[in-house]
Amino acid sequence: MRPVPALAAVGTAAAVLLTLTPAAQAATPAVQIVKVYYDSPGSDLRSNASLNGEYVVIKNTTTKAINLGGWAISDKTGYRYAFQSGVALKPGKTYTLRTGTGNDGTSGVYWNRKAYVWNNDKDTAYVRRSDGKLIDSCPYNSTRADFTNC
């Protein structure tokens, strides 16, 4: 028995959708950039408070702790922060990298810079493993907000 052409087309379309759906869905990276606060509140005066108002938040999306030693966060122009060995990002937890100075702790670290990193209009944040492999990126191009959720 020959299939009815309309039903054959529907069956073929469904098979194509089933085939494309898994490939079309990008896997969530193990460490994901979830927020870039690129324009700290107030005037850009290079005060430590203003510098620390500029930050990047990353999240461990896996069920295992990830040792961030040697991993790096950078911007499009090449400013780069490398995590020290022993920094473990627990499963499902976030970690914040602030531009200015402060005391590193369990929820974040400080870049210890005296100048801003993230452009107020457009830039891209990258997170790379210790071997240099790109894990995630978050571009933004906005003058309407001070931050972007990635």
Rank of each mutant, 00 (worst) to 15 (best):
M1R: 10
M1N: 14
R2W: 12
P3G: 09
V4C: 13
V4T: 10
A6D: 01
A6Q: 05
A6W: 07
L7K: 06
A9Y: 01
A9N: 12
A9I: 09
V10G: 02
V10C: 08
A13V: 10
A13I: 04
A14I: 04
A15L: 15
V16I: 14
L17C: 07
L18E: 05
T19D: 01
L20R: 15
P22C: 13
P22V: 05
A23Y: 06
A24T: 06
T28K: 15
A30D: 08
A30F: 01
V31S: 07
I33R: 11
I33A: 03
V34R: 10
K35I: 01
V36G: 07
S40D: 11
S40Q: 12
P41G: 15
L45V: 11
R46I: 05
S47K: 14
N48H: 02
A49H: 03
S50F: 10
S50I: 08
S50G: 12
S50L: 11
N52D: 12
G53V: 07
E54W: 10
E54A: 08
E54N: 11
Y55L: 07
V57A: 03
T61D: 13
T62Y: 03
T62W: 04
T63W: 04
K64R: 09
I66E: 03
L68V: 04
L68A: 12
L68N: 15
G69D: 02
W71G: 06
W71Q: 11
A72M: 09
A72S: 13
S74A: 12
S74T: 05
S74D: 01
D75H: 02
T77N: 09
G78T: 09
G78I: 00
R80C: 01
Y81A: 08
A82H: 12
S85L: 02
G86L: 05
G86A: 07
G86H: 07
G86V: 07
L89K: 07
L89S: 05
P91V: 10
G92E: 10
K93M: 11
T94G: 03
Y95R: 11
T96G: 11
T96M: 10
R98T: 04
R98Q: 10
R98M: 01
T99I: 10
T99H: 05
T99M: 12
T99R: 14
G100R: 09
T101C: 08
N103W: 01
T106G: 14
T106N: 15
S107T: 06
S107F: 12
Y110M: 09
Y110I: 04
Y110N: 05
Y110E: 05
A115M: 11
A115H: 15
V117Q: 07
V117P: 00
V117S: 02
N119E: 06
N119S: 02
N120D: 14
N120I: 09
D121P: 01
K122D: 12
T124N: 08
T124Q: 13
A125V: 02
V127D: 05
R128P: 00
S130G: 14
D131V: 08
G132W: 02
G132A: 14
K133Y: 00
Y140F: 04
Y140M: 03
N141H: 13
N141P: 04
S142D: 01
D146P: 00
D146C: 04
F147W: 11
T148L: 03
C150A: 12
